[in-house]
Write a protein that binds this DNA or RNA. Structure first.
Lengths: 155, 155
DNA sequence: TATTGTTATACTCTATAACTATA
DNA sequence: TATAGTTATAGAGTATAACAATA
């Protein structure tokens, strides 16, 4: 079987397994992406979030609504510009993030189980070079925006 | 960046690029999966298709309807059992398949461009071992069934 | 009774555009 | 006039269950 199809197959499989694991923490993979960014780069507006993940502002509203309902994040007014809402992790959000980090480790260990430490390093190196050439943003899953050009009707 | 996240990122990216490429042929990635199977294992029923791709029979109906409307496949009655419909590629379907094979080559070449022949072999080997351990079915993209355990609402 | 294919229905995910409140 | 956030609406994708024809 060719390498790129294997890559796609494994990537999809890995995403599915990850979804199963984080479901135990009560969050979805897209939410995990947002939480990780909120943890790493605090003090950003919803607009900044939309730009970073390359999604529509209206989707950000939905995501942040969800996180707020689950008590994982909060909207805070920006004193400098009353149009802007700063999004921040709550204590509970930070706690979930600790769980997410653990899940990521277990997930990695499960999927790479058949490889030696040396082979894992090899793999990382090869994948990293492909990612750079493909122009992927580190830490941002490409599944966010309108990636798959959905339709292809001939008629 | 960890290897498994890179794998997921690249897999999703690769799937998106592939979708763009086959769109030029008037088909979607799921359709390509079906067409490939129809080409390789002719004479199968819709039920067999549902089992092979691990999808609902009702989805098969939709898929085959589409392929039939685009003139790429046809339903034929099974002489032995009048409940069964055999699905077959049309001439036009076979022609599209030739285009698909070309697209797959170009796609592979584009994504693996940064790697030498030796590194590609290495990569294939590593990925193959991961795929075997993950229990993936060769040639079947795991994106078909109800893979992502969609919801994770806490409330 | 069981199975093949089909239809009907509902629910999630996402894109677009119109709207508000501020600047 | 432009921007941040919001609301409303519509479309694709998919799961489920009920159904007709045949075994």
């Amino acid at each position: 079987m060719n390498a790129v199809f294997l890559l796609t197959q494994l990537g999809t499989h890995a995403a599915g397994r990850f979804a199963e694991r984080v479901a135990a923490l009560g969050v979805t993979p897209p939410q995990v992406g947002l939480l990780r960014w909120l943890a790493q780069s605090p003090g950003n507006s919803q607009q900044a979030m939309a730009r970073h993940f390359n999604i529509q502002p209206s989707r950000v509203v939905t995501f942040v609504d969800e996180l707020e309902q689950q008590g994982l994040a909060e909207r805070r007014p920006d004193p400098a510009d009353r149009r802007v809402r700063i999004v921040e992790l709550t204590e509970r959000g930070k706690e979930v993030m600790r769980g997410v980090r653990k899940v990521m480790q277990d997930h990695e260990e499960e999927l790479l189980a058949p490889l030696s430490a040396e082979e894992r390093a090899q793999m990382s190196d090869l994948l990293h070079r492909l990612a750079v050439q493909a122009g992927l943003t580190p830490g941002v899953h490409p599944g966010y925006p309108n990636l798959p050009p959905r339709i292809a009707k001939t008629t």
